[in-house]
Design a protein around this nucleic acid. Structure first.
Lengths: 338, 338
DNA sequence: TTGAAAGCGCTAACAC
DNA sequence: GTGTTAGCGCTTTCAA
């Protein structure tokens, strides 16, 4: 065990209460004593034990953020926003990675509950929120991040993914595209479903336009490349003239798949491409990728703000929905008017 | 406050000691009692308080990992390896992000010390290890990750970055390139210096070969793009025929910069490109990028193993050095023998 | 097989 | 201004 407050007190010739006061309310203590105590702290290399503080205070100073997949730059940006907002209230953000696995999501949430965090920010994988309701019942506030609001009893921050999907598809249609492919999955993830539904609605409004859904196993670069490679033949045969990928990781992979091999197709000549999230790699791709931007850091900041709101008052939980924004780049230039 | 072990005991009609035993050494307890206690736990929704456990045990079950920059896929892969190794001993990895800032690095390490973690894995930004020596003196073991071994009193895992730099430069030279540019920075980061030194050594061994160092402010995509754009003119004038970037984020940016604008140059026709780390985006770039691979997950696993070693015995700390490996892709095909 | 109780390090209420 | 002390939730020793 390290040095405790008791040893500091002995060394400085004061009581433990005084040491604690020096640390937490220095103005209550005579300047001279403050100095003596600080000297003792330095000599001994005292570092407070946060487990003891927390046990005493009944609450941790940390906020738990359960990310779907930490390898997706989208989430590290959300985390950064949350960190910034948390720092304002002298809180800390603990990041846990679910790696798109429901079991890990559950065990991460439980870990946070054992730690008695101030609250949990989570973009749940599963449709079943009963576990989160239990967590809340036990006194730990929960905020839904990047998630629709079927259950309006939780505060939530989200982006209108249906609108985002529409935005993407409408843009492709306006560019003269008619045979769309949607690439994304697994289809149990709410956000992915919404993006598809939005796109499908836009397509339904235009005569002769069609959309095919190609489900992927993960939202990863590799899956995108695989699908992109398979799409080459369809594009060459004219069966597909536009691809809407459910996120940018996929979109970048799809682009590589389309441009690769011995029979590459042209972007945007043969096929247009739109992604989602607007991560920095999207703008840096060979053919810069048009993408639906989400206000990533703002989502994180807002989630923390909603958490504090719900902690402070018993008022109705708020539901913040941001509007997505289309960032047009060269990957989706209009079809040649052939 | 949540439900405590006391309430569970009352509900089950047993003592708190028995509840604790049910949780931690169930075989010591009569089966019937075990059941009663579990029933009470379920009814009450009891979740143990880890602050109390930790205070009692004097140690946390967590290992702290201080990452230089969580937005670099390299570190999330190291983290994944560490998580896997930690899970074997039923430990957890806490991830903290320094964002290339020394102040944040310091405050992250202090946070971990307050939490009395089992140990800290860190790739320190600064050359000054005195703070880490203090941490160790107070009883928290420290392992240096991805870092040379000036101070051999800390266990360390690293990759031979000098050898990596040599590997990259020699490959470019063997491909007929003679006018190299090194892109990387800030130059106070040890790994970057080593990679440059290795490259410079290889260049010195070849007549008429030269290498120019272009220092960047960060190891980011944006900085790479900026430098890549500036390099276009030099390449066009024949002053540079190869670029070695200090990591893949930079390399990808450099590639975009070289291929962009109204006067793009050809890769590998006009200029060859080699990166470092072999992150997955490197293989997925327009022109797939040759890169020096580090065994990322293995680095994380080894760091955890070294931590447990140094905790268990007073023996000499070990220093593990992995050899880097060149992964050749099309961005560095030999120069046209013009 | 179980219960009672000490004590981990800290904060805050209270007494002086 | 400072000291004393109860008690946060838990594990573990000792006794029964």
């Amino acid at each position: 065990m390290g040095v405790s407050i008791k040893e500091v007190a002995a060394r400085a010739g004061v009581s433990v209460g005084t040491v604690s006061n020096v640390l937490n309310r220095p103005d209550m203590v005579k300047a001279e004593t403050v100095e003596k105590v600080h000297a003792a702290i330095d000599e001994l290399g005292y570092v407070p034990n946060s487990a003891a503080q927390q046990l005493r205070e009944g609450q941790s100073r940390s906020i738990g953020l359960v990310a779907l997949d930490i390898n997706n730059p989208f989430f590290t940006d959300v985390a950064r926003g949350a960190e910034r907002a948390a720092a304002l209230g002298r809180h800390t953000v603990l990041l846990a990675n679910s790696g798109e696995s429901i079991e890990r999501e559950i065990s991460n949430i439980e870990m946070f509950e054992r730690q008695r965090v101030r609250g949990v920010l989570v973009s749940p994988l599963s449709e079943d929120l009963s576990r989160l309701r239990d967590v809340r019942k036990r006194g730990i506030p929960v905020v839904l991040v990047d998630r629709g609001t079927e259950d309006t009893s939780f505060p939530s921050v989200a982006v209108d993914d249906v609108a985002g999907g529409e935005l993407a598809a409408r843009h492709l249609l306006e560019g003269g595209r008619r045979r769309l492919a949607f690439v994304g999955g697994p289809m149990r993830i709410r956000q992915i479903i919404d993006r598809y539904r939005g796109a499908a609605a836009a397509v339904a409004a235009v005569d002769e336009a069609t959309i095919t859904s190609i489900e992927t196993e993960a939202l990863s670069l590799d899956e995108g490349m695989r699908v992109g490679g398979e799409l080459r033949a369809l594009v060459a045969r004219g069966e597909i003239d536009a691809v809407f990928a459910a996120n940018d990781l996929l979109a970048i992979g799809v682009q590589q798949g389309l441009l690769g091999g011995d029979d590459p197709v042209a972007i945007p000549g043969d096929v247009a491409l739109v992604g989602y999230d607007d991560i920095s790699f999207a703008a840096a791709a060979v053919v810069p990728i048009t993408s639906v931007r989400q206000p990533r850091e703002l989502i994180g900041e807002t989630a923390v703000a909603l958490l504090e709101e719900v902690r402070e008052s018993e008022s109705e939980p708020r539901h913040v929905v941001f509007e997505p924004e289309l960032v047009v780049r060269s990957s989706s230039a209009p079809a040649p008017t052939a």
